[in-house]
């Protein structure tokens, strides 16, 4: 057998006729990718009207940074993906409008109610950009930060509409 000079020759020599070796290297590769997707960067698609006009109703592709899982470094105005408070197994995308200790409005602005509440420790207040068609903290109350999966950093699909997703909140102009 000739010495392995090319990478292809090396791969053939190493894995051909060694099913166990091939199996473990496949396992390690797949699980490395899984680790990257769960702890590094993931991809997510939209479904539903709650984040109009930031995202379309169906199948916008989003890039999600998993560094922010469980609410690490999340700030007011960030768009996050999290496991639903209400339905086991569902994932949701909303915008953070209040962190622990903040005072937030309980109901929709203009609904007549001016009730305020303080977000409890370890929780945040999440609201969809499309107020009339969003099921969010106005319905289920403060959301535990531990449910947060990641922060949406960019819209990457459709490619022609690609953009960075930035903090959409700006201070009120008091001038």
């Amino acid at each position: 057998m000739p010495a392995p000079h090319t990478p292809l020759q090396y791969l053939i020599n190493t894995y051909s006729g060694h099913p166990l070796r091939l199996f473990t290297v496949t396992l390690r590769t797949v699980l490395s990718l899984h680790l990257f997707v769960t702890h590094g960067y993931g991809y997510s698609t939209t479904w539903g009207a709650s984040m109009l006009p930031t995202f379309e109703i169906l199948l916008d592709g989003l890039l999600v940074s998993k560094y922010y899982r469980r609410g690490r470094g999340i700030q007011v105005g960030d768009v996050i993906t999290f496991d639903s408070v209400v339905e086991p197994g569902q994932k949701v995308i909303k915008r953070v409008l209040g962190l622990e200790g903040d005072y937030v409005m309980r109901d929709t602005p203009g609904s007549g109610s001016l009730e305020m509440l303080q977000v409890p420790k370890g929780h945040c207040w999440v609201i969809g950009d499309n107020l009339p068609h969003s099921r969010d903290s106005r319905h289920f109350g403060p959301m535990p930060m531990a449910l947060i999966r990641g922060k949406v950093i960019a819209k990457i699909q459709p490619f022609s509409e690609r953009k960075w997703v930035t903090n959409g909140l700006t201070p009120v102009d008091e001038g």
Partner: peptide, 8 residues
Amino acid sequence: FWSPSHPE
């Protein structure tokens, strides 16, 4: 479970 009051 992840504690609701202490996320980590």
